[in-house]
Design a protein around this nucleic acid. Structure first.
Lengths: 128, 128
DNA sequence: GCAGTAGTATTACCATGGTAATAGTATGTC
DNA sequence: GACATACTATTACCATGGTAATACTACTGC
C-alpha cells in the first residue's frame, strides 16, 4: 500500500486530487480542463500523472468504452492530516501552539479571523 | 539565487539546517555526529548533501586547514515561513483559521496547550 | 619515510515529480 | 473505406533529494 511512507505529494498531484475530490470522478480530459487555462499542461502530461498516481495507490480508474474514469482513493482529510502532521513534526517538533504561534506571528490576521480562532478555542475548551 | 522557487527542502536538508542553526557552524564530521546514531549515514552522504545545499545557496563554507566549515545561509524563520506558507496555500487556500481549525480537530490538545493558544490570541487582539 | 587517518572531489545510482513526444488503437464521419 | 479524432501505451528526459562508493590528497604518528 502507499501509506507506508511519507505520502509525499507534489503540487500537481494535489491539484489533481482536489479536482477528483470535488467531482468524485473525472476523465483525463475533464481533469485537464479543470486544471486548465492557467497551467497549460499537455493532455499526456495529465494522463501520465494520473497513471503514476494510480501506481502509488492515490487514485484508481474504471473503464467506460475506451475512456478511463478516475476516482480518488485517498480522502481529503487523510491527506490534509498527513501533510500537516509532517510539517508539524518537521518544523515545530509536534508543538501545536508552536505552529499556531508561528502562523499568527507571520500573518496579518483580520479581527474577523481572530474572532473565528477565539471561538474555535472556546469550542474546544467546552468539548473536553 | 535560490529563493526563486519553492524552497523545497528535504527532510535530511532540514535536519542539517537545524544543526547549523543551533551551532552556527559545523564541519561535515560534526554534522554527521549530530545527525548520527539514529540515522547511520555515511560520511560522504553528509558531505555530498552539504555540497548540494551549497550549490542551492542554502549554506556556505569557509576553509580551515583542509576542513570545510559550513554555515547556514538561510534563517530558521525564513524557512519556517516558506514551508508553512506553502502548506497554508496548498491545503487551506491561505485560510489561517482553516488551518488552525484543522490542527485543533485532528489533535489532542492538553488544557495547557489550549491556555497557551488562548493567550496567543489574546495577545494578538491587544496588539492590533 | 611510510601507513593510517581524515579530509575533499568525483562519479554513480535510484526514486519520484513533472513534462511531454511519439506511437498505437478504436471510433465516428463523410 | 479513408481520415480525422480521441483515447491509451510506451518511452524519454530533466531536476532534485538521498545515499554512497571510489579516488585523490594531505597530515600525523611511529
Amino acid at each position: 500500500m502507499n501509506t507506508g511512507k511519507g505520502l509525499r505529494l507534489g503540487d500537481l498531484q494535489l491539484r489533481i486530487l482536489r479536482i477528483l475530490w470535488r467531482h468524485h470522478e473525472a476523465t483525463v480530459a475533464e481533469v485537464m480542463a479543470k486544471l486548465g487555462r492557467a497551467s497549460r499542461l499537455a493532455y499526456t502530461t495529465v494522463a501520465t500523472m494520473l497513471r503514476k498516481m494510480e501506481a502509488r495507490g492515490l487514485v484508481r480508474h474504471r473503464v467506460e468504452g475506451r475512456t478511463f474514469i478516475y476516482q480518488p482513493l485517498v480522502g481529503e482529510a487523510q491527506v490534509s492530516r498527513k501533510l500537516t502532521d509532517h510539517l508539524l513534526e518537521r518544523l515545530f517538533q509536534g508543538s501545536l501552539s508552536g505552529m499556531v504561534s508561528h502562523l499568527l506571528s507571520t500573518h496579518e490576521v483580520t479581527p474577523d479571523e481572530l474572532a473565528k480562532l477565539e471561538s474555535l478555542i472556546e469550542e474546544r475548551k467546552r468539548a473536553r
